[in-house]
Amino acid sequence: MQRVNMIMAESPGLITICLLGYLLSAECTVFLDHENANKILNRPKRYNSGKLEEFVQGNLERECMEEKCSFEEAREVFENTERTTEFWKQYVDGDQCESNPCLNGGSCKDDINSYECWCPFGFEGKNCELDVTCNIKNGRCEQFCKNSADNKVVCSCTEGYRLAENQKSCEPAVPFPCGRVSVSQTSKLTRAETVFPDVDYVNSTEAETILDNITQSTQSFNDFTRVVGGEDAKPGQFPWQVVLNGKVDAFCGGSIVNEKWIVTAAHCVETGVKITVVAGEHNIEETEHTEQKRNVIRIIPHHNYNAAINKYNHDIALLELDEPLVLNSYVTPICIADKEYTNIFLKFGSGYVSGWGRVFHKGRSALVLQYLRVPLVDRATCLRSTKFTIYNNMFCAGFHEGGRDSCQGDSGGPHVTEVEGTSFLTGIISWGEECAMKGKYGIYTKVSRYVNWIKEKTKLT
Score class of each variant (00 low, 15 high):
residue 6 M to G: 13
residue 7 I to S: 08
residue 12 P to D: 11
residue 13 G to Y: 14
residue 13 G to D: 07
residue 15 I to P: 07
residue 16 T to L: 12
residue 17 I to M: 12
residue 17 I to D: 02
residue 18 C to N: 04
residue 19 L to S: 03
residue 23 L to P: 02
residue 31 F to S: 11
residue 32 L to S: 15
residue 32 L to Q: 15
residue 34 H to A: 13
residue 37 A to Y: 02
residue 37 A to K: 00
residue 39 K to Y: 05
residue 40 I to F: 08
residue 44 P to F: 07
residue 45 K to L: 02
residue 46 R to V: 01
residue 46 R to I: 01
residue 51 K to A: 10
residue 53 E to S: 00
residue 54 E to L: 00
residue 62 R to C: 00
residue 69 C to V: 00
residue 70 S to L: 04
residue 72 E to V: 06
residue 79 E to C: 05
residue 80 N to S: 14
residue 81 T to F: 09
residue 83 R to Q: 13
residue 84 T to H: 05
residue 89 K to I: 08
residue 91 Y to W: 04
residue 93 D to E: 09
residue 97 C to A: 03
residue 103 L to T: 12
residue 106 G to A: 08
residue 107 S to L: 08
residue 108 C to T: 02
residue 111 D to G: 11
residue 114 S to Y: 11
residue 115 Y to Q: 04
residue 122 G to H: 08
residue 123 F to N: 05
residue 124 E to M: 12
residue 124 E to V: 10
residue 133 T to R: 08
residue 135 N to M: 12
residue 135 N to G: 13
residue 136 I to Q: 13
residue 141 C to D: 00
residue 143 Q to I: 02
residue 145 C to G: 03
residue 147 N to T: 15
residue 151 N to K: 12
residue 153 V to A: 10
residue 153 V to T: 14
residue 155 C to R: 01
residue 156 S to C: 05
residue 157 C to A: 00
residue 159 E to N: 08
residue 165 E to L: 10
residue 178 C to E: 01
residue 178 C to S: 00
residue 179 G to Y: 01
residue 180 R to C: 03
residue 189 L to W: 11
residue 194 T to K: 08
residue 201 Y to N: 12
residue 203 N to V: 07
residue 204 S to G: 10
residue 204 S to R: 13
residue 213 N to C: 04
residue 214 I to E: 14
residue 218 T to V: 09
residue 218 T to Y: 09
residue 219 Q to D: 08
residue 223 D to Q: 11
residue 224 F to T: 15
residue 224 F to Q: 06
residue 224 F to C: 06
residue 225 T to H: 10
residue 225 T to L: 11
residue 228 V to T: 13
residue 228 V to P: 07
residue 234 K to M: 07
residue 234 K to V: 15
residue 245 N to P: 03
residue 245 N to C: 05
residue 250 A to H: 14
residue 252 C to V: 00
residue 252 C to Y: 01
residue 254 G to H: 00
residue 254 G to P: 01
residue 255 S to G: 05
residue 255 S to I: 08
residue 256 I to C: 01
residue 256 I to E: 01
residue 263 V to Q: 01
residue 266 A to V: 02
residue 266 A to N: 02
residue 268 C to K: 01
residue 278 V to M: 07
residue 278 V to I: 06
residue 284 I to D: 06
residue 286 E to I: 10
residue 288 E to D: 12
residue 290 T to N: 10
residue 302 H to G: 02
residue 304 N to S: 14
residue 311 K to G: 05
residue 313 N to Y: 10
residue 316 I to Q: 00
residue 318 L to Y: 01
residue 320 E to N: 03
residue 324 P to L: 04
residue 329 S to M: 09
residue 329 S to E: 15
residue 330 Y to P: 00
residue 331 V to D: 00
residue 334 I to S: 01
residue 334 I to Y: 00
residue 334 I to W: 00
residue 337 A to T: 03
residue 338 D to Q: 05
residue 341 Y to S: 09
residue 342 T to W: 01
residue 342 T to G: 05
residue 343 N to A: 07
residue 344 I to V: 09
residue 349 G to T: 04
residue 356 W to G: 03
residue 361 H to F: 08
residue 361 H to S: 15
residue 372 L to A: 14
residue 378 D to V: 03
residue 379 R to N: 05
residue 385 S to N: 12
residue 385 S to W: 14
residue 387 K to D: 12
residue 390 I to R: 07
residue 394 M to Y: 05
residue 395 F to Q: 00
residue 396 C to W: 02
residue 397 A to Y: 02
residue 403 G to H: 15
residue 403 G to N: 12
residue 404 R to D: 15
residue 407 C to E: 04
residue 407 C to W: 12
residue 410 D to P: 15
residue 410 D to C: 09
residue 410 D to I: 15
residue 411 S to D: 15
residue 413 G to R: 04
residue 422 T to I: 11
residue 428 I to V: 09
residue 430 S to V: 14
residue 436 A to E: 10
residue 438 K to G: 14
residue 439 G to I: 03
residue 441 Y to C: 03
residue 442 G to R: 10
residue 443 I to E: 02
residue 443 I to Y: 06
residue 446 K to D: 09
residue 446 K to P: 04
residue 448 S to F: 02
residue 453 W to S: 00
